[in-house]
Design a protein around this nucleic acid. Structure first.
Length: 507
RNA sequence: GGCGCCGUACCCAAGUGGUAAGGGAGAGGUCUGCAAAACCUUUAUGCAACGGUUCGAAUCCGUUCGGCGCCUCCA
Protein backbone atom coordinates (compact mmCIF):
# COMPACT_ATOMS: atom_id res chain seq x y z
CA UNK A 1 0.00 0.00 0.00
CA UNK A 2 1.11 3.52 -0.61
CA UNK A 3 -0.18 6.89 0.39
CA UNK A 4 -2.51 8.79 -1.88
CA UNK A 5 -3.14 12.48 -1.44
CA UNK A 6 -5.75 14.66 -3.07
CA UNK A 7 -3.82 17.36 -4.87
CA UNK A 8 -5.79 20.52 -5.52
CA UNK A 9 -3.45 21.33 -8.36
CA UNK A 10 -4.59 18.31 -10.37
CA UNK A 11 -7.98 17.86 -8.69
CA UNK A 12 -7.27 14.20 -8.16
CA UNK A 13 -5.77 11.74 -5.73
CA UNK A 14 -2.13 11.14 -6.52
CA UNK A 15 0.34 8.72 -5.11
CA UNK A 16 2.58 10.63 -2.74
CA UNK A 17 6.20 10.65 -3.77
CA UNK A 18 8.36 13.21 -2.02
CA UNK A 19 10.96 15.06 -4.05
CA UNK A 20 13.69 13.46 -1.99
CA UNK A 21 12.70 10.03 -0.79
CA UNK A 22 12.31 9.87 2.95
CA UNK A 23 12.24 13.64 3.37
CA UNK A 24 9.16 15.83 3.26
CA UNK A 25 9.07 19.61 3.22
CA UNK A 26 5.70 20.93 4.26
CA UNK A 27 4.37 24.45 4.68
CA UNK A 28 0.97 25.37 6.06
CA UNK A 29 -0.51 28.85 6.21
CA UNK A 30 -0.63 29.83 9.85
CA UNK A 31 -2.88 32.29 11.61
CA UNK A 32 -2.98 36.04 11.33
CA UNK A 33 -2.64 36.90 14.97
CA UNK A 34 -5.16 39.54 15.85
CA UNK A 35 -7.85 37.60 17.71
CA UNK A 36 -8.26 34.29 19.53
CA UNK A 37 -8.58 31.10 17.52
CA UNK A 38 -11.92 29.45 16.92
CA UNK A 39 -13.15 25.96 16.05
CA UNK A 40 -12.38 26.55 12.39
CA UNK A 41 -8.71 27.05 13.16
CA UNK A 42 -8.80 23.88 15.19
CA UNK A 43 -10.09 21.90 12.21
CA UNK A 44 -7.38 23.23 9.99
CA UNK A 45 -4.43 22.72 12.27
CA UNK A 46 -5.61 19.39 13.62
CA UNK A 47 -6.04 18.15 10.07
CA UNK A 48 -2.51 19.10 9.16
CA UNK A 49 -1.23 17.81 12.47
CA UNK A 50 -2.59 14.37 11.64
CA UNK A 51 -1.10 14.61 8.17
CA UNK A 52 2.33 15.40 9.59
CA UNK A 53 1.99 12.68 12.20
CA UNK A 54 1.07 10.14 9.56
CA UNK A 55 3.87 11.14 7.21
CA UNK A 56 6.26 10.70 10.11
CA UNK A 57 4.67 7.41 11.07
CA UNK A 58 5.39 6.18 7.57
CA UNK A 59 9.04 6.86 8.19
CA UNK A 60 9.50 10.23 6.54
CA UNK A 61 11.64 12.91 8.05
CA UNK A 62 9.29 15.87 7.90
CA UNK A 63 10.25 19.51 8.14
CA UNK A 64 7.03 21.27 9.02
CA UNK A 65 6.85 25.04 8.69
CA UNK A 66 3.88 27.09 9.75
CA UNK A 67 4.06 30.85 9.67
CA UNK A 68 2.73 33.41 12.09
CA UNK A 69 1.40 36.42 10.27
CA UNK A 70 2.11 39.33 12.55
CA UNK A 71 2.25 42.00 9.89
CA UNK A 72 -1.45 42.02 9.29
CA UNK A 73 -3.17 42.22 6.00
CA UNK A 74 -4.94 45.00 4.26
CA UNK A 75 -8.61 44.37 4.09
CA UNK A 76 -8.22 44.27 0.35
CA UNK A 77 -5.69 44.74 -2.37
CA UNK A 78 -6.71 48.30 -2.93
CA UNK A 79 -5.81 51.02 -0.53
CA UNK A 80 -9.00 50.67 1.39
CA UNK A 81 -9.46 49.17 4.78
CA UNK A 82 -7.18 48.97 7.73
CA UNK A 83 -4.57 46.45 8.72
CA UNK A 84 -6.30 44.09 11.13
CA UNK A 85 -3.61 43.95 13.73
CA UNK A 86 -3.25 47.71 13.67
CA UNK A 87 -6.98 48.10 14.00
CA UNK A 88 -7.11 45.84 17.04
CA UNK A 89 -4.13 47.68 18.50
CA UNK A 90 -5.89 50.97 18.06
CA UNK A 91 -9.00 49.61 19.75
CA UNK A 92 -6.98 48.20 22.64
CA UNK A 93 -4.63 51.20 22.76
CA UNK A 94 -1.53 49.06 22.70
CA UNK A 95 1.33 48.58 20.28
CA UNK A 96 0.42 46.31 17.34
CA UNK A 97 3.24 43.94 18.18
CA UNK A 98 1.76 43.50 21.63
CA UNK A 99 -1.46 42.23 20.04
CA UNK A 100 0.52 39.92 17.81
CA UNK A 101 2.51 38.57 20.73
CA UNK A 102 -0.50 38.05 22.97
CA UNK A 103 -2.47 36.28 20.29
CA UNK A 104 0.47 34.18 19.19
CA UNK A 105 0.82 32.85 22.73
CA UNK A 106 -2.91 32.29 22.90
CA UNK A 107 -2.78 30.37 19.64
CA UNK A 108 -0.03 28.03 20.78
CA UNK A 109 -1.75 27.53 24.08
CA UNK A 110 -4.97 26.45 22.35
CA UNK A 111 -3.14 24.18 19.93
CA UNK A 112 -1.16 22.54 22.71
CA UNK A 113 -4.37 21.70 24.48
CA UNK A 114 -5.72 20.17 21.30
CA UNK A 115 -2.73 17.88 21.12
CA UNK A 116 -1.41 19.60 18.01
CA UNK A 117 2.32 19.08 17.83
CA UNK A 118 4.18 22.31 17.28
CA UNK A 119 5.61 23.03 13.85
CA UNK A 120 9.36 22.63 13.56
CA UNK A 121 9.66 26.30 12.71
CA UNK A 122 7.07 29.03 13.28
CA UNK A 123 8.54 31.92 11.33
CA UNK A 124 7.13 35.39 11.89
CA UNK A 125 6.36 37.48 8.83
CA UNK A 126 7.77 40.56 10.54
CA UNK A 127 11.08 38.77 10.96
CA UNK A 128 11.36 38.05 7.25
CA UNK A 129 10.93 41.46 5.69
CA UNK A 130 14.35 41.28 4.09
CA UNK A 131 13.56 37.97 2.41
CA UNK A 132 10.30 39.38 1.13
CA UNK A 133 12.02 42.45 -0.27
CA UNK A 134 14.54 40.20 -2.01
CA UNK A 135 11.80 38.36 -3.86
CA UNK A 136 10.15 41.62 -4.85
CA UNK A 137 13.45 42.90 -6.19
CA UNK A 138 13.82 39.76 -8.25
CA UNK A 139 10.31 40.14 -9.64
CA UNK A 140 11.01 43.73 -10.60
CA UNK A 141 14.16 42.61 -12.36
CA UNK A 142 12.34 39.81 -14.17
CA UNK A 143 9.68 42.20 -15.31
CA UNK A 144 6.89 40.51 -13.35
CA UNK A 145 6.36 43.52 -11.13
CA UNK A 146 6.22 47.27 -11.43
CA UNK A 147 6.60 50.14 -9.03
CA UNK A 148 4.11 52.95 -8.71
CA UNK A 149 4.49 55.76 -6.28
CA UNK A 150 6.31 53.81 -3.54
CA UNK A 151 4.24 50.64 -3.97
CA UNK A 152 5.08 47.55 -5.98
CA UNK A 153 2.51 45.43 -7.77
CA UNK A 154 2.61 42.04 -9.39
CA UNK A 155 1.74 42.07 -13.06
CA UNK A 156 -0.58 39.06 -13.39
CA UNK A 157 -0.81 39.36 -17.15
CA UNK A 158 2.87 38.47 -17.37
CA UNK A 159 2.38 35.13 -15.65
CA UNK A 160 0.75 32.76 -18.10
CA UNK A 161 -0.11 30.15 -15.49
CA UNK A 162 -2.09 32.51 -13.33
CA UNK A 163 -5.21 30.60 -12.33
CA UNK A 164 -3.84 27.10 -12.57
CA UNK A 165 -4.59 26.29 -8.95
CA UNK A 166 -8.01 27.83 -8.59
CA UNK A 167 -9.19 27.17 -12.12
CA UNK A 168 -9.87 30.80 -12.77
CA UNK A 169 -9.40 32.61 -16.01
CA UNK A 170 -8.02 36.10 -15.77
CA UNK A 171 -10.55 37.62 -18.14
CA UNK A 172 -13.43 36.28 -16.10
CA UNK A 173 -12.28 37.68 -12.85
CA UNK A 174 -11.92 41.05 -14.50
CA UNK A 175 -15.60 41.03 -15.25
CA UNK A 176 -16.39 40.05 -11.69
CA UNK A 177 -18.30 42.62 -9.83
CA UNK A 178 -16.00 42.76 -6.85
CA UNK A 179 -12.75 43.64 -8.49
CA UNK A 180 -12.33 47.34 -8.38
CA UNK A 181 -11.19 49.07 -11.51
CA UNK A 182 -9.70 52.31 -10.28
CA UNK A 183 -6.27 52.56 -8.63
CA UNK A 184 -2.69 52.63 -9.65
CA UNK A 185 -2.67 49.04 -10.81
CA UNK A 186 -2.27 48.15 -14.46
CA UNK A 187 -4.71 45.29 -14.27
CA UNK A 188 -7.51 44.92 -11.73
CA UNK A 189 -6.23 41.49 -10.71
CA UNK A 190 -2.73 42.76 -10.02
CA UNK A 191 -1.89 42.48 -6.36
CA UNK A 192 0.37 44.38 -4.02
CA UNK A 193 3.82 43.06 -3.24
CA UNK A 194 4.78 46.13 -1.27
CA UNK A 195 2.66 48.97 -0.04
CA UNK A 196 3.78 52.47 0.69
CA UNK A 197 3.09 53.36 4.30
CA UNK A 198 1.06 56.48 4.77
CA UNK A 199 1.99 58.72 7.64
CA UNK A 200 0.57 57.31 10.85
CA UNK A 201 0.94 53.72 9.73
CA UNK A 202 2.78 52.21 12.68
CA UNK A 203 4.06 48.95 11.18
CA UNK A 204 6.56 50.08 8.54
CA UNK A 205 9.92 49.06 7.23
CA UNK A 206 12.48 50.72 5.00
CA UNK A 207 12.75 49.37 1.49
CA UNK A 208 14.24 50.34 -1.87
CA UNK A 209 10.88 51.96 -2.62
CA UNK A 210 10.60 53.95 0.57
CA UNK A 211 8.99 53.12 3.89
CA UNK A 212 6.21 50.63 3.66
CA UNK A 213 5.04 47.14 4.46
CA UNK A 214 4.73 43.87 2.54
CA UNK A 215 1.65 42.76 0.65
CA UNK A 216 -0.37 39.90 1.99
CA UNK A 217 0.82 37.04 -0.22
CA UNK A 218 4.54 37.56 -0.32
CA UNK A 219 5.29 36.43 3.23
CA UNK A 220 4.35 32.83 2.55
CA UNK A 221 6.49 32.67 -0.56
CA UNK A 222 9.43 34.13 1.32
CA UNK A 223 9.21 32.00 4.42
CA UNK A 224 8.36 28.71 2.75
CA UNK A 225 11.20 28.96 0.23
CA UNK A 226 13.66 30.18 2.83
CA UNK A 227 13.30 27.04 4.91
CA UNK A 228 12.16 24.46 2.38
CA UNK A 229 13.86 25.48 -0.83
CA UNK A 230 12.47 26.85 -4.05
CA UNK A 231 10.51 23.69 -4.77
CA UNK A 232 9.02 21.70 -1.96
CA UNK A 233 6.58 18.86 -1.38
CA UNK A 234 3.44 20.01 0.37
CA UNK A 235 1.71 23.32 0.85
CA UNK A 236 -1.44 23.31 2.93
CA UNK A 237 -4.07 25.77 3.97
CA UNK A 238 -7.76 26.43 4.21
CA UNK A 239 -9.93 26.20 1.13
CA UNK A 240 -10.79 29.84 1.53
CA UNK A 241 -7.16 30.66 0.85
CA UNK A 242 -7.04 28.87 -2.46
CA UNK A 243 -7.83 32.07 -4.25
CA UNK A 244 -6.35 34.57 -4.30
CA UNK A 245 -3.73 33.82 -1.67
CA UNK A 246 -2.28 30.55 -2.93
CA UNK A 247 -2.72 31.47 -6.54
CA UNK A 248 -0.67 34.59 -5.94
CA UNK A 249 1.94 32.65 -4.02
CA UNK A 250 2.45 30.41 -7.01
CA UNK A 251 2.65 33.36 -9.36
CA UNK A 252 5.21 35.19 -7.24
CA UNK A 253 7.35 32.23 -6.42
CA UNK A 254 7.48 30.64 -9.83
CA UNK A 255 8.09 33.94 -11.55
CA UNK A 256 10.93 34.69 -9.16
CA UNK A 257 12.65 31.30 -9.28
CA UNK A 258 11.50 29.96 -12.66
CA UNK A 259 10.96 26.67 -10.90
CA UNK A 260 7.83 24.82 -9.86
CA UNK A 261 6.85 26.01 -6.40
CA UNK A 262 4.92 23.17 -4.78
CA UNK A 263 4.28 19.55 -5.72
CA UNK A 264 1.15 18.84 -3.67
CA UNK A 265 -1.41 21.42 -2.61
CA UNK A 266 -3.66 20.30 0.23
CA UNK A 267 -6.73 22.26 1.24
CA UNK A 268 -8.89 21.57 4.22
CA UNK A 269 -12.57 22.39 4.26
CA UNK A 270 -14.33 24.71 6.64
CA UNK A 271 -16.37 24.44 9.79
CA UNK A 272 -19.93 25.62 9.37
CA UNK A 273 -22.58 26.74 11.81
CA UNK A 274 -26.10 26.05 10.64
CA UNK A 275 -24.58 25.41 7.24
CA UNK A 276 -22.80 28.75 7.12
CA UNK A 277 -19.07 29.23 7.27
CA UNK A 278 -17.70 29.96 10.71
CA UNK A 279 -15.55 33.02 10.37
CA UNK A 280 -14.34 36.04 12.16
CA UNK A 281 -15.97 38.37 9.70
CA UNK A 282 -19.37 36.72 9.99
CA UNK A 283 -19.11 36.80 13.75
CA UNK A 284 -20.65 33.34 14.12
CA UNK A 285 -17.53 31.75 15.55
CA UNK A 286 -16.97 29.89 18.78
CA UNK A 287 -13.54 30.53 20.22
CA UNK A 288 -11.59 27.56 21.42
CA UNK A 289 -11.27 29.08 24.84
CA UNK A 290 -15.04 29.16 25.11
CA UNK A 291 -15.40 25.65 23.74
CA UNK A 292 -12.87 24.35 26.25
CA UNK A 293 -15.01 25.64 29.10
CA UNK A 294 -17.63 23.13 28.11
CA UNK A 295 -15.69 20.34 26.41
CA UNK A 296 -12.36 18.69 26.91
CA UNK A 297 -10.02 19.88 24.15
CA UNK A 298 -9.49 16.30 23.08
CA UNK A 299 -13.23 15.92 22.61
CA UNK A 300 -13.00 18.82 20.19
CA UNK A 301 -10.13 17.05 18.46
CA UNK A 302 -12.11 13.82 18.32
CA UNK A 303 -15.14 15.66 16.97
CA UNK A 304 -13.05 17.20 14.20
CA UNK A 305 -11.45 13.90 13.25
CA UNK A 306 -14.87 12.34 12.88
CA UNK A 307 -15.23 14.12 9.56
CA UNK A 308 -12.85 14.14 6.63
CA UNK A 309 -10.50 17.10 6.29
CA UNK A 310 -11.89 17.90 2.83
CA UNK A 311 -15.51 17.85 4.02
CA UNK A 312 -17.26 20.63 5.80
CA UNK A 313 -18.08 19.93 9.39
CA UNK A 314 -21.23 21.36 10.84
CA UNK A 315 -20.83 22.55 14.38
CA UNK A 316 -23.62 22.21 16.90
CA UNK A 317 -23.85 21.61 20.57
CA UNK A 318 -25.70 18.37 19.94
CA UNK A 319 -22.94 17.08 17.67
CA UNK A 320 -20.25 18.04 20.17
CA UNK A 321 -22.18 16.34 22.94
CA UNK A 322 -22.37 13.20 20.85
CA UNK A 323 -18.66 13.30 20.24
CA UNK A 324 -18.10 13.74 23.95
CA UNK A 325 -19.99 10.56 24.78
CA UNK A 326 -18.36 8.62 21.98
CA UNK A 327 -14.90 9.71 23.00
CA UNK A 328 -15.54 8.77 26.62
CA UNK A 329 -16.60 5.36 25.46
CA UNK A 330 -13.35 4.88 23.62
CA UNK A 331 -11.29 6.02 26.58
CA UNK A 332 -13.27 3.73 28.85
CA UNK A 333 -12.12 0.80 26.80
CA UNK A 334 -8.52 1.92 27.11
CA UNK A 335 -8.98 2.34 30.82
CA UNK A 336 -10.52 -1.09 31.23
CA UNK A 337 -7.83 -2.59 29.08
CA UNK A 338 -5.06 -1.07 31.11
CA UNK A 339 -6.74 -2.06 34.35
CA UNK A 340 -6.81 -5.61 33.05
CA UNK A 341 -3.13 -5.44 32.18
CA UNK A 342 -2.37 -4.31 35.68
CA UNK A 343 -4.48 -7.07 37.09
CA UNK A 344 -2.98 -9.72 34.86
CA UNK A 345 0.48 -8.66 35.92
CA UNK A 346 -0.31 -8.68 39.59
CA UNK A 347 -1.75 -12.16 39.38
CA UNK A 348 1.21 -13.23 37.25
CA UNK A 349 -1.04 -14.60 34.53
CA UNK A 350 0.83 -17.09 32.39
CA UNK A 351 -1.90 -18.45 30.12
CA UNK A 352 -4.83 -16.91 28.29
CA UNK A 353 -6.17 -16.58 24.80
CA UNK A 354 -4.74 -14.49 22.01
CA UNK A 355 -6.36 -12.21 19.46
CA UNK A 356 -5.43 -11.48 15.89
CA UNK A 357 -5.07 -7.74 15.53
CA UNK A 358 -3.44 -7.57 12.13
CA UNK A 359 -6.67 -6.95 10.25
CA UNK A 360 -7.56 -3.95 12.37
CA UNK A 361 -4.19 -2.42 11.80
CA UNK A 362 -4.40 -3.11 8.09
CA UNK A 363 -7.79 -1.46 7.77
CA UNK A 364 -6.67 1.53 9.76
CA UNK A 365 -3.61 2.11 7.62
CA UNK A 366 -5.61 1.61 4.44
CA UNK A 367 -7.96 4.33 5.56
CA UNK A 368 -5.11 6.71 6.31
CA UNK A 369 -3.39 5.86 3.05
CA UNK A 370 -6.49 6.96 1.19
CA UNK A 371 -6.04 10.70 1.54
CA UNK A 372 -5.88 10.61 5.33
CA UNK A 373 -9.38 9.27 5.93
CA UNK A 374 -9.38 9.78 9.68
CA UNK A 375 -13.12 9.25 10.18
CA UNK A 376 -12.89 5.84 8.58
CA UNK A 377 -9.80 5.08 10.64
CA UNK A 378 -11.67 6.08 13.78
CA UNK A 379 -14.32 3.57 12.86
CA UNK A 380 -11.65 0.88 12.88
CA UNK A 381 -10.63 1.99 16.35
CA UNK A 382 -14.20 1.55 17.52
CA UNK A 383 -14.30 -1.91 15.99
CA UNK A 384 -11.17 -2.74 17.91
CA UNK A 385 -12.70 -1.29 21.06
CA UNK A 386 -15.79 -3.43 20.73
CA UNK A 387 -13.74 -6.56 20.21
CA UNK A 388 -11.59 -5.62 23.18
CA UNK A 389 -14.60 -5.10 25.41
CA UNK A 390 -16.10 -8.39 24.29
CA UNK A 391 -12.93 -10.20 25.20
CA UNK A 392 -12.68 -8.38 28.48
CA UNK A 393 -16.20 -9.48 29.32
CA UNK A 394 -15.81 -13.17 28.74
CA UNK A 395 -14.74 -15.64 31.37
CA UNK A 396 -11.81 -16.72 29.30
CA UNK A 397 -8.89 -14.50 30.16
CA UNK A 398 -6.71 -12.84 27.56
CA UNK A 399 -2.99 -13.38 27.79
CA UNK A 400 -0.77 -10.60 29.03
CA UNK A 401 1.01 -10.43 25.73
CA UNK A 402 -2.20 -9.95 23.80
CA UNK A 403 -3.47 -7.35 26.23
CA UNK A 404 -0.29 -5.41 25.78
CA UNK A 405 -0.46 -5.80 22.04
CA UNK A 406 -3.94 -4.31 22.01
CA UNK A 407 -2.78 -1.46 24.18
CA UNK A 408 0.21 -0.97 21.94
CA UNK A 409 -2.02 -0.87 18.88
CA UNK A 410 -4.34 1.70 20.43
CA UNK A 411 -1.32 3.80 21.36
CA UNK A 412 0.19 3.52 17.92
CA UNK A 413 -2.92 4.22 15.86
CA UNK A 414 -5.07 6.30 18.16
CA UNK A 415 -2.19 7.91 20.01
CA UNK A 416 0.78 8.44 17.79
CA UNK A 417 -1.16 8.98 14.59
CA UNK A 418 -4.51 10.46 15.58
CA UNK A 419 -3.43 12.00 18.87
CA UNK A 420 -6.57 11.19 20.82
CA UNK A 421 -5.49 8.23 22.95
CA UNK A 422 -2.89 8.58 25.68
CA UNK A 423 0.23 6.70 24.77
CA UNK A 424 1.68 6.60 28.22
CA UNK A 425 1.19 3.06 29.41
CA UNK A 426 -0.71 3.13 32.65
CA UNK A 427 0.40 -0.25 33.86
CA UNK A 428 1.48 0.88 37.27
CA UNK A 429 0.10 3.12 39.95
CA UNK A 430 -3.53 3.81 40.52
CA UNK A 431 -5.66 2.95 37.52
CA UNK A 432 -8.00 5.70 38.50
CA UNK A 433 -5.70 8.53 37.48
CA UNK A 434 -7.38 10.74 35.00
CA UNK A 435 -6.42 9.56 31.59
CA UNK A 436 -7.10 12.80 29.79
CA UNK A 437 -4.99 14.79 32.14
CA UNK A 438 -2.04 12.57 31.46
CA UNK A 439 -2.44 12.99 27.74
CA UNK A 440 -2.56 16.73 27.94
CA UNK A 441 0.53 16.73 30.06
CA UNK A 442 2.24 14.75 27.38
CA UNK A 443 2.35 17.85 25.22
CA UNK A 444 4.63 19.33 27.79
CA UNK A 445 3.06 22.70 28.25
CA UNK A 446 0.41 22.21 30.85
CA UNK A 447 1.06 22.62 34.50
CA UNK A 448 2.08 19.25 35.79
CA UNK A 449 -0.30 17.83 38.33
CA UNK A 450 0.58 18.39 41.92
CA UNK A 451 1.88 14.96 42.86
CA UNK A 452 1.61 15.43 46.61
CA UNK A 453 -2.00 16.46 46.53
CA UNK A 454 -2.89 13.78 44.03
CA UNK A 455 -1.23 11.23 46.24
CA UNK A 456 -3.15 12.26 49.33
CA UNK A 457 -6.35 12.53 47.31
CA UNK A 458 -5.85 9.07 45.97
CA UNK A 459 -5.20 7.61 49.41
CA UNK A 460 -8.31 9.26 50.80
CA UNK A 461 -10.50 7.88 48.07
CA UNK A 462 -8.99 4.45 48.55
CA UNK A 463 -9.83 4.69 52.21
CA UNK A 464 -13.42 5.62 51.40
CA UNK A 465 -13.72 2.80 48.92
CA UNK A 466 -12.32 0.39 51.47
CA UNK A 467 -14.80 1.56 54.08
CA UNK A 468 -17.64 1.39 51.62
CA UNK A 469 -16.69 -2.17 50.82
CA UNK A 470 -17.43 -3.20 54.39
CA UNK A 471 -20.64 -1.22 54.33
CA UNK A 472 -21.69 -3.10 51.23
CA UNK A 473 -20.78 -6.41 52.75
CA UNK A 474 -23.22 -5.53 55.48
CA UNK A 475 -25.76 -4.66 52.81
CA UNK A 476 -26.22 -1.11 54.00
CA UNK A 477 -27.17 -0.08 50.48
CA UNK A 478 -28.50 3.39 51.11
CA UNK A 479 -25.32 4.41 52.87
CA UNK A 480 -23.06 2.90 50.24
CA UNK A 481 -25.11 4.51 47.49
CA UNK A 482 -24.87 7.82 49.24
CA UNK A 483 -21.10 7.61 49.30
CA UNK A 484 -21.05 6.77 45.62
CA UNK A 485 -23.43 9.57 44.70
CA UNK A 486 -21.65 12.16 46.79
CA UNK A 487 -18.26 11.20 45.44
CA UNK A 488 -19.59 11.72 41.95
CA UNK A 489 -20.84 15.15 42.92
CA UNK A 490 -17.35 15.99 44.17
CA UNK A 491 -15.85 14.66 40.95
CA UNK A 492 -15.04 11.01 41.41
CA UNK A 493 -16.74 8.33 39.39
CA UNK A 494 -17.26 5.01 41.17
CA UNK A 495 -17.93 1.75 39.39
CA UNK A 496 -18.56 -1.50 41.22
CA UNK A 497 -17.17 -4.46 39.34
CA UNK A 498 -17.34 -8.11 40.11
CA UNK A 499 -13.85 -8.16 41.53
CA UNK A 500 -13.67 -4.78 43.17
CA UNK A 501 -14.49 -1.14 42.84
CA UNK A 502 -12.91 1.18 40.32
CA UNK A 503 -12.79 4.90 40.71
CA UNK A 504 -11.53 7.75 38.63
CA UNK A 505 -11.58 11.47 38.54
CA UNK A 506 -14.02 13.06 36.17
CA UNK A 507 -13.57 16.35 34.33
C1' G B 1 -22.12 36.81 -13.68
C1' G B 2 -17.57 33.25 -13.33
C1' C B 3 -15.23 28.96 -10.82
C1' G B 4 -16.06 25.01 -7.35
C1' C B 5 -18.53 21.97 -3.61
C1' C B 6 -22.54 19.60 -1.12
C1' G B 7 -27.59 17.23 -0.21
C1' U B 8 -26.83 9.58 3.15
C1' A B 9 -31.61 7.51 9.31
C1' C B 10 -33.78 11.83 14.90
C1' C B 11 -28.34 14.24 15.14
C1' C B 12 -22.97 13.96 13.46
C1' A B 13 -20.69 11.23 9.61
C1' A B 14 -17.75 7.33 6.14
C1' G B 15 -18.69 5.23 1.58
C1' U B 16 -17.21 7.27 -6.09
C1' G B 17 -19.97 0.89 -9.97
C1' G B 18 -21.35 -4.76 -6.65
C1' U B 19 -25.84 -4.49 -3.15
C1' A B 20 -25.66 1.16 2.98
C1' A B 21 -18.82 1.84 8.10
C1' G B 22 -18.59 4.27 12.72
C1' G B 23 -20.30 7.57 16.83
C1' G B 24 -24.52 9.84 19.45
C1' A B 25 -29.73 9.50 20.58
C1' G B 26 -34.11 5.95 20.90
C1' A B 27 -36.30 0.83 21.94
C1' G B 28 -35.74 -4.21 23.96
C1' G B 29 -32.47 -7.63 26.49
C1' U B 30 -27.96 -9.80 29.40
C1' C B 31 -24.94 -8.80 33.72
C1' U B 32 -25.60 -6.22 38.61
C1' G B 33 -28.30 -5.40 45.53
C1' C B 34 -28.99 -0.93 42.77
C1' A B 35 -26.25 2.44 39.70
C1' A B 36 -22.42 2.69 36.24
C1' A B 37 -19.63 0.34 32.57
C1' A B 38 -19.76 -3.30 28.92
C1' C B 39 -22.03 -6.71 25.63
C1' C B 40 -26.26 -8.50 22.46
C1' U B 41 -30.64 -7.32 19.43
C1' U B 42 -33.15 -3.43 16.98
C1' U B 43 -33.60 1.55 14.25
C1' A B 44 -32.59 4.10 5.91
C1' U B 45 -35.73 -2.20 0.60
C1' G B 46 -33.02 3.02 0.69
C1' C B 47 -28.75 7.50 0.01
C1' A B 48 -32.92 15.47 -2.28
C1' A B 49 -36.38 14.55 -6.87
C1' C B 50 -37.01 12.77 -11.77
C1' G B 51 -34.94 10.52 -16.13
C1' G B 52 -30.78 7.84 -18.50
C1' U B 53 -26.26 4.41 -19.00
C1' U B 54 -25.26 -0.63 -16.92
C1' C B 55 -26.23 -7.49 -15.50
C1' G B 56 -25.83 -4.14 -11.38
C1' A B 57 -25.64 3.07 -9.12
C1' A B 58 -25.76 6.48 -3.07
C1' U B 59 -21.64 6.06 -6.39
C1' C B 60 -21.39 7.55 -13.80
C1' C B 61 -24.43 11.11 -17.24
C1' G B 62 -28.54 14.73 -17.74
C1' U B 63 -32.42 17.83 -15.74
C1' U B 64 -34.81 20.02 -11.52
C1' C B 65 -35.08 21.60 -6.43
C1' G B 66 -32.41 23.02 -2.01
C1' G B 67 -27.86 24.58 0.56
C1' C B 68 -22.80 26.34 0.72
C1' G B 69 -17.73 28.21 -0.54
C1' C B 70 -14.40 31.44 -3.41
C1' C B 71 -14.20 35.76 -6.75
C1' U B 72 -12.64 41.76 -0.33
C1' C B 73 -9.31 39.76 4.98
C1' C B 74 -10.57 34.91 6.89
C1' A B 75 -8.29 28.06 8.59
Amino acid sequence: MSLFIYNTLTRSKEEFKPIHEGFVGMYVCGPTVYSHSHIGHAKSYISFDVIVRYLRYLGNKVLYIQNITDVGHLTDDADEGEDKIIKQARLDRVHPMQIAETITRSYFDDMDKLGVERPDISPRASGHIIEQIEIIKKLLMNGFAYEVNGSVYYDVQKFKNYGKLSGRVLEESVEGTRVESRSEKRHPADFALWKKAESGHIMRWPSPWGEGFPGWHIECSAMSMKYLGETFDIHGGGMDNQFPHHECEIAQSEAATEKPFVKYWIHNNLVTVNGKKMSKSLGNFITLKDAFKKYDPLVVRFFILQSHYRSTLDFSDEALQGANTGYDKLLNTIRNLRDEIKKAESEKRTDGVGLDLSLHKKHFLEAMDDDFNAPLALGVLFDLARETNQSLNTEQKISIDTLKQIDQLFSELGGRILGIIPIIPIYTGNFSLTIKKQLVNMTGTNTPPNRDIEDIESKLIDLLIETRKEIRENKLWSLSDKIRDQLEVIGFKIEDKKDGTNWRKIN
